[in-house]
């Protein structure tokens, strides 16, 4: 069952432009010039219930604008949005009871209150009874392991602890969809990993649909089964994570330490990424040249050390961004 349905969604921003210098500033007062920027350009996609979907793209691609339209913050210029059968533009408040949002760069907790008081506050604003809120806090604090710091003012928590509390605050009202906008930004690798585990656990336990944006490829690789890539306001790829990796399986990276230099200039499908003395890092397009040919060319007796790997997901996505 699809919980999010987007059809031909478009959003344009009017941005004020100013000519150079003092005269430009004066003329901008009397004759302002506006430039239209299409932040989201005719995108369509659907999200199934219980899915963890990565919605990614470079800075300024239109990710956050899309999330803001899906959550009713921004009004689209055209197109249709349906989130859990609700039109976010017309019934924003009704939708608010059904979804949760965590913006990694924007805290929603009250800094001077303890995490517990914050959760009580969120329970009240979502019209949950005191008894139900208490029960929910107990349940979530166990799941997210908050017991040790639940009674400490949020301003005194570490960033990792705070993000955990932010996620719990957005789950108090049992949302059916959780929008996570860069939830692991600024966190160290250990905390990132624990947040990812918690997101997975939450998705499994409550079947919460998760709509995730992140620049951290590990977040996407470890959490999502489906990836939607947006660039310049357009969807450039919408595929499963396994397909994404599979399509790029024909590209390999070889890191090799050689006794003597090898000349690859006449070989097709080889791209030298780095060369330093007798160390080499090359990318091979196996559609054009197979690995055996390359290894023969290098000559096994000439090899001191070798490592063959798939190209990192980060690189795959960067390539898609560049193509987009």
């Amino acid at each position: 069952m699809s919980v999010i349905s987007v059809k031909h969604l478009t959003k344009t921003f009017k941005i004020k432009e100013k000519k150079k210098g003092f005269s430009g500033s004066i003329s901008a007062i009397f004759k302002p010039i506006y430039k239209e920027v299409k932040a989201v350009n005719d995108i369509s996609f659907e999200v199934e219930e219980g899915e963890i979907i990565a919605f990614i793209g470079p800075n300024g691609a239109g990710k956050s604008t899309t999330i803001k339209m899906l959550t009713g913050i921004l009004y689209p210029d055209s197109g249709e949005i349906n989130v859990l059968g609700i039109n976010p533009t017309r019934e924003r408040k009704k939708l608010a009871y059904e979804i949760g949002t965590v913006f990694g760069q924007k805290e929603q907790l009250w800094m001077h209150l303890t995490a517990y008081d914050n959760f009580k506050f969120f329970g009240a604003i979502y019209d949950i009874t005191e008894k139900e809120t208490e029960k929910r806090i107990e349940e979530l604090s166990k799941l997210f392991d908050l017991e040790k710091f639940i009674n400490i003012p949020v301003r005194n928590l570490s960033l990792g602890q705070r993000i955990r509390c932010e996620i719990v605050a957005s789950l108090i009202h049992k949302p059916k969809i959780l929008f996570l906008d860069e939830p692991t930004i600024g966190l160290d690798p250990v905390v990132k990993e624990s947040i990812r585990k918690l997101i997975k656990k939450m998705n499994k336990e409550y079947r919460t649909t998760i709509f995730l944006t992140s620049h951290d490829i590990s977040d996407i690789e470890k959490l999502c089964k489906r990836v939607v890539i947006i660039n310049d306001g357009k969807i450039v790829m919408d595929d499963s994570m396994s397909n994404l990796k599979y399509h790029y399986m024909d590209k390999k990276v070889i890191e090799v330490k050689l006794n003597t230099k090898v000349n690859f200039s006449n070989t097709k499908g080889i791209n030298i990424l780095k060369e330093k003395e007798n160390r080499l890092r090359i990318e091979i397009d196996t559609k054009q040249t197979d690995l055996t040919t390359v290894l023969k060319l290098i000559n096994p007796e000439n090899i001191m050390d070798i490592n063959i790997s798939n190209i990192p997901l980060e690189e795959i996505i960067a390539q898609i961004y560049r193509k987009g």
């Binding site: 913050i73 408040k93 608010a96 924007k106 979502y126 019209d127």
Partner: peptide, 8 residues
């Protein structure tokens, strides 16, 4: 913008 999508 971040307060708009809260139910108050």
């Amino acid at each position: 913008a971040y307060m708009i999508n809260k139910p108050y």
